[in-house]
């Protein structure tokens, strides 16, 4: 136990430091990219060149947001502010960034969670009953490849057109209730399920070739039990790693999906805030995504150990 703790503490500190570095890099890259692209947030705040702001209003806005200071000073203040845990005030939303995150993160997290869950469900249903079963395996494998190749936004438009516009089975827009979550979830989950299933199928096939499977069968275990209790466990590990990547990819793809389905969420907010060069809001959302990604990594590590107890020795 003490031995384990000895190893866990430096590992935890290392992870923490790594996480902080990732956050610092994300904040700095956001700052740099928004300052390197042309455009002036004040024009966006005050409505652009064809609005009618007075020179005093422009000067006041510049001063209020500190945009009249030298860029290095702006950067230093920005990092110092984030280090204090203050995400600042959004220029374009007239709200504290933290309030925007509080309102917009839950719908996006709900969409991500449901997409990941549905993707896993679809992958399991596609792989476990069909692996190494001739024609069924070939058909399922082909469907997985097609699924993995579908662009989310295209699938979203297709589902919207078919299930919402033509057949009127599901609401086309909004956040109201569970039915509104179905189409966005399917748009994100089907391609992801294709990816997960491909990886799962490969490891599943490999596992089925292992000697312990033969042993299990020799003990008289039925095919279903062999698949679920022995082969599946081996096939899950690479899929867990893939899911960590998927958490990041889901946020990116949520931008298009939230716009298509007029859903609340961070993706749409990110799109709008980049367009208005709203630095505090963009960096707040980017940091939130980075944090989600880091936490997904930690969760994956924990899951590894749960799935494969052998890892306890090497990875506490």
């Amino acid at each position: 136990m003490t031995h384990l703790l000895h190893r866990a503490v430096p590992r935890f500190l290392g992870r923490l430091l790594g996480g902080l570095l990732v956050l610092l890099a994300a904040a700095s890259l956001t700052f740099a990219s928004l300052h390197l692209t042309p455009g002036d947030p004040v024009t966006a705040i005050l409505g652009g060149a064809s609005a009618n702001p007075t020179p005093e209003a422009i000067a006041a806005a510049r001063h209020e947001y500190g945009l009249d200071r030298p860029i290095m000073v702006q950067y230093a203040l920005y990092i110092a502010r984030i280090a204090r845990g203050d995400l600042g005030q959004s220029f374009s939303q007239h709200m504290p960034v933290i309030a925007v995150l509080r309102a917009q993160a839950p719908p996006t997290l709900a969409l991500m969670a449901s997409s990941l869950a549905v993707a896993w469900l679809l992958a399991l249903l596609s792989v476990v009953p069909t692996a190494r079963r001739g024609v069924a395996a070939a058909i399922a494998s082909t469907l997985e490849t097609i699924g993995a190749g579908l662009p989310q936004f295209w699938l979203g438009i297709l589902l919207l057109w078919g299930l919402a516009f033509e057949w009127r089975l599901l609401p086309p827009a909004g956040n109201h209730g569970l039915p509104a979550l179905v189409l966005p979830t399917l748009s994100l989950a089907i391609p992801l399920a294709g990816f997960i299933a491909q990886v799962m199928r490969e490891s599943f096939d490999l596992a089925l070739d292992q000697p312990f499977i033969l042993t299990a069968r020799a003990r008289g275990l039925g095919d279903g039990a062999v698949r679920l209790r022995h082969a599946l466990r081996h096939a899950l590990l690479p899929c867990v790693s893939l899911s960590t990547w998927a958490v990041g990819a889901l946020v990116g793809n949520a931008v298009a999906i939230e716009i298509i389905f007029s859903r609340q969420g961070l993706g749409r907010e990110l799109f709008l805030s980049v367009a208005t060069h709203d630095m505090p809001l963009v960096s707040g959302i980017v940091l939130f995504i980075a944090l989600t990604y880091i936490l997904a990594g930690v969760a994956a590590d924990t899951l590894y150990v749960l799935i494969d107890p052998r890892l306890k020795g090497t990875r506490p």
């Binding site: 609005a51 057109w161 078919g162």
Partner: peptide, 22 residues
């Protein structure tokens, strides 16, 4: 005054009205 905030993916919108191959 001028329209300044984005109208979302307008291009996608027009696309979705056309009969897409199914």
């Amino acid at each position: 005054m001028e329209l300044t905030i984005l109208r979302g993916a307008q291009a996608l919108g027009s696309l979705s009205m056309r009969p897409l191959p199914f």
